[in-house]
């Protein structure tokens, strides 16, 4: 019995450390570290200025770090138990983890958007709305276990955010900074791919390496831009 349990743990560990899981862990680790370094690297700028834009920019990357942590956590469990749906084996635990992941994911994107839009979105309830929409997205994910719903929800999410980013870009006085909007748009697209990769298993498996490499590139580029400016 003890031998069998030991062998099971050994097999599990072996699986965990295989190339697929290894690259998964490395991918999440690099993005979590990048996001946390952006968050802590901009702490002094925020403390000195109490600037709202800096505040939401920082918080967005804190949410990215948390979302990626839960994403890699889900991935590890799926891999360890060799299942494609987290809730099939661990109903409550799986649902809670998925809920937290979806909530943090949406908040990360919304806060990044708000860091650019805060001067235009003047309502004092806006933060409340963003939390409510993120909670709604997380609840819909839990209630409807349907890939089509997930797909449509993410398409709607994409249309709303990209439309807002486009309007903001049109109104921006600094057209030379247009690459920022391109980076944010890419970040959004690949973030949605990352979400779909979790929600609809095997849907994007053929492009996984491509998605990971581009996502890493985007986070590293933002990180580079931050350290170049903050020193």
């Amino acid at each position: 019995m003890v031998l069998m349990t030991g062998r099971a743990i050994g097999n599990g560990f072996g699986k965990l450390m295989s190339l697929g899981m290894g690259s998964e862990i490395l991918y999440s680790f690099v993005i979590i570290v990048c996001s946390l370094m952006i968050y802590f690297g901009t702490k002094e700028l925020y403390k000195l200025t109490s600037h709202k834009g800096i505040k939401y920019f920082r918080l967005s990357f804190l949410f990215f770090a948390l979302a990626y942590f839960f994403r890699s956590f889900i991935k590890i469990i799926l891999f360890y138990f060799e299942i494609s749906e987290l809730r099939t084996i661990l109903p409550i635990f799986g649902s809670v983890t998925l809920f937290i992941f979806m909530y943090f994911s949406s908040m990360a994107i919304f806060y990044l958007l708000y860091s650019v839009m805060w001067r235009k979105w003047k309502s004092k309830w806006i933060i409340c709305y963003l939390h409510i929409i993120s909670l709604a997205i997380a609840i819909i994910t839990l209630l409807f276990q349907n890939p089509l719903i997930y797909f449509l929800m993410n398409i709607l999410f994409f249309i709303f955010i990209s439309f807002t980013v486009f309007i903001s870009f049109k109104q921006s006085k600094k057209k030379k900074h247009s690459n920022l909007y391109a980076i944010y748009l890419m970040l959004l697209i690949f973030w949605i791919f990352n979400i779909l990769d979790i929600l609809i298993p095997n849907f994007l498996q053929a492009f996984q390496l491509f998605i990971y490499l581009i996502s890493l590139g985007i986070f590293l580029l933002i990180f580079y831009k931050v350290i170049r400016k903050t020193g």
């Binding site: 901009t42 002094e44 700028l45 000195l48 200025t49 600037h51 709202k52 834009g53 800096i54 920019f57 860091s115 650019v116 903001s168 921006s172 600094k174 900074h177 920022l180 831009k225 931050v226 400016k229 903050t230 020193g231």
Partner: peptide
């Protein structure tokens, strides 16, 4: 000291806000 730090960091703050259109 914090006041001096603000003056020292001012251009970094402005560059950062400008770069990310915050």
């Amino acid at each position: 000291e914090k006041g001096y730090r603000y003056l020292e960091k001012y251009s970094a703050i402005i560059n950062f806000i400008d770069e990310f259109e915050l």
